[in-house]
């Protein structure tokens, strides 16, 4: 009888393993180094806080997207949910509703839209890509109808301390959106790694049939996951609307792409079942650093897009190679 090797879970120090596990972190550090050499001003605390604040909206959306992509799905509707819930909250505050209630309403609406996505995908057996492509268009259209195509701003919006605080406030000298991002990260980290729901998320992405047979309520889990994505999109919508002090009908356009890029840069497999939310945070920081760094270096926004695309492509190709080895 062969010995079951249960006693050696602690592995020896393995350099290769660390490189492959920390790949995205190393990429981020290299990026920071390059930008710093080109412009030492990058490391100024003000700039770093600015970078983090710019990153927060994408990161928050990407946290929700991580759950979705872990199941092998995709959520293209996040940008539209962001716009619609931002507009509804802005208009609700404008009509005199207390800001906390309006924000809560906006978040619930986002969760509801996400829930709808999940419902269509779970019970309609629709491909996530097509289902959320459709709802993306619907929600965007609804935003234009609701706003009549005009930005929503009002004195009530400008005068609400709470609402202004969401996107523009500081806590202990740290911009509040960063606090929201960190808290959201911690919550979703725990949910993904420490709850039964988290395990089911991975199981669903790894093999939906096997998960079902093992007693996972796959429909319920799917719906919950898209609900989280919708909720996070509307949370990002609150921050953006607050920062701009107005709701733009075209807000959040193509934000889904940045969120997907952050998740994929973070090493989560588009096929589902594999990935980490920590990676998503790093991925979002890479995108944030790229944007911020290139702005500092005065690179035209036209070129910025090309660079961003190339970086994502390299990251994905490196990841493929790593998985093959």
């Amino acid at each position: 009888m062969q010995q079951v090797d249960n006693e050696t879970p602690k592995k020896k120090f393995d350099f290769k393993q660390i490189i492959s596990k920390m790949g995205t972190v190393i990429a981020l550090l290299i990026l920071v180094l390059v930008v710093t050499i080109a412009n030492p001003g990058f490391l100024q605390p003000d700039n770093l806080l600015n970078l983090l604040r710019q990153t927060s909206i994408n990161a928050i959306i990407a946290f929700g997207m991580t759950f979705v992509i872990l199941t092998g799905g995709i959520d293209l509707s996040v940008g539209s949910i962001l716009a619609f819930t931002g507009a509804v909250t802005a208009s609700t505050i404008g009509s005199g509703t207390p800001a906390w209630l309006a924000i809560l309403f906006g978040l619930l609406l986002g969760a509801l839209f996400g829930c709808l996505n999940g419902f269509i995908i779970a019970y309609g057996k629709a491909a996530a890509f097509i289902a959320t492509l459709a709802t993306m268009t619907i929600f965007r259209g609804a935003t234009y109808v609701f706003t009549d195509g005009n930005p929503i701003s009002s004195n009530a919006l400008n005068n609400s301390f709470l609402f202004q605080y969401v996107g523009r406030g500081y806590l202990f000298g740290i911009p509040f959106p960063i606090i929201i991002m960190v808290v959201a990260f911690l919550i979703w980290f725990v949910v993904l790694n420490k709850t039964a729901f988290g395990r089911k998320t991975y199981a669903l992405g790894g093999n939906e049939r096997a998960a079902f047979v093992a007693g996972v309520n796959t429909n319920k889990t799917t719906i919950l996951i898209y609900t989280i994505s919708g909720l996070m999109a509307s949370l990002a919508g609150m921050i953006l609307t607050s920062r701009l002090s107005s709701a733009q009908p075209d807000a959040g356009t193509s934000y889904e792409m940045d969120a997907i890029a952050a998740v994929v840069l973070g090493g989560t497999s588009l096929a589902g079942g594999k990935g980490r939310i920590t990676g998503t945070l790093v991925g979002a920081l890479i995108i944030g650093t790229l944007n911020n760094g290139m702005n500092l270096l005065g690179i035209s926004s036209f070129y910025q897009q090309i660079v961003k695309g190339v970086v994502i492509l390299i990251a994905v190709l490196l990841d493929r190679k790593k998985n093959k080895a």
Binding site: R199, K200, Y202, A203, N207, A210, V213, A214, G215
Partner: peptide, 18 residues
């Protein structure tokens, strides 16, 4: 392969899932 196991997942997660 299709219904019994999540092949890419660990033994640990497969056993614990139900």
């Amino acid at each position: 392969k299709d219904e019994g196991l999540i092949l890419e997942d660990s033994i640990y997660n497969n056993i614990a899932l139900p």
